[in-house]
Write a protein that binds this DNA or RNA. Sequence first.
DNA 1: CAGTGGTCTAGACCACACC
DNA 2: GTGTGGTCTAGACCACTGG
Lengths: 237, 237
Amino acid sequence: MGRISLSRQIADHLRREIHAGRFARTGRLPSEVVLGRDFQVSRGTVREALRALEQEGLVVRRHGVGSFVPRRVTAGLERLESFTETIRRAGGQASDHVLEIREVALDAAAATALDAAVGDRGVLVRSLRLVNGDPALYCEDLLPARVASTVEQVQQRRERESLLDFLRLDLRVDVREAVLALAAVNAPRGVAAILRIRPRTPLLRLTGTAYDASDRPVYCTTNYVRTDRYVFTVARR
Amino acid sequence: MGRISLSRQIADHLRREIHAGRFARTGRLPSEVVLGRDFQVSRGTVREALRALEQEGLVVRRHGVGSFVPRRVTAGLERLESFTETIRRAGGQASDHVLEIREVALDAAAATALDAAVGDRGVLVRSLRLVNGDPALYCEDLLPARVASTVEQVQQRRERESLLDFLRLDLRVDVREAVLALAAVNAPRGVAAILRIRPRTPLLRLTGTAYDASDRPVYCTTNYVRTDRYVFTVARR
DNA sequence: CAGTGGTCTAGACCACACC
DNA sequence: GTGTGGTCTAGACCACTGG
């Protein structure tokens, strides 16, 4: 089962060292040959590890020069991780609160997004995220019956910091990709109350669907973000 | 100089085939071994090509199963390409119009973003993008003197479809990464007029900076998007 | 079971940046 | 020139999926 590849182990090791500030002074990592010698692996394996770190944005490689820890580590919306994680990575203090879990019937939009039929059952999770103690993001996640058929099954979500954690740890469902659409909207009345703002204040709305390895929809989501409280970024590469 | 690697040639070849619908029926690509035989290269080289395509979101690989063209090809804001390209990729008809090119002095925000001093000279490019014939995005790009010191140098931008094209083709500057911050704002008066909306209509504002391979800022940008006209997406992986 | 992608090796040569 | 990362090879074994 869970054997961890050499390259993964090396990447994990380097990631810890980077976070511990091991290369902070010059930002320079040892050369691939040296790393291979140190870890007693072939150069290809070292390169695989560096590739992973590069993709995370934790390392940049420069041909003929070396591998470096960039001064500015960026990780934003393009990373498939919980908003709580993203916010913390950016240096914010974040917490997650589930407001409600209930069964619903899928409307047309949800049915389309989830590859299901209108009227099919689903479980809705409404949650609120605080950034530095203030309401910053209101979220509605909708799970189709194929993923979770009863409200009881989803109660464990309350113990987790995000739907992604709940899916991975409790339901053993791995999300491979999610696609979000960005819109600027005036705050709907109910959302405004939850986020403690006046109605019609502009909010960033993120709507989308998450998919598993087989490209089946796992959940769809709608998020309203107070961009005066927290600013999401997107790294383009 | 511009030698093209085998893996790159193979990736380009497969990309063309994919776009031509070559694998459309089943979505399945030949196995790595078969591709290696067909192209007369080692399996590692094939894998390098597939890795590139996977990163573009054009191919997904499933352990023990095969490589496939996903039914839903997503490419959004996370891709470093011009908005014109992104919009066209999503099936929209897009065009680009430069409104003005002029010299300016950097204010504090721009100076910080561009790693320059307040009051340093820069060249501002104001442009408008139409989607399906309607104004959808207003953009202000600001180049520091290090990249372009005179307005004349930037005139060629008018002949290109995007600042990114102009930089790459005319100034030979390659952008490696850009980071955008997302905000929902009420349309400022001037922007509202350009985008033909009432002031205080909510707009998506994208602000950020682009960097070259050495992590030097190449330009900073502010964009206002009518999300009723065009909806950007972000793929999270 | 057969076939697929995932990992790993050891070695070679090339392209690039910097001194 | 020296040292770096980039590409490529040929071969091996492992892990996963599906019939």
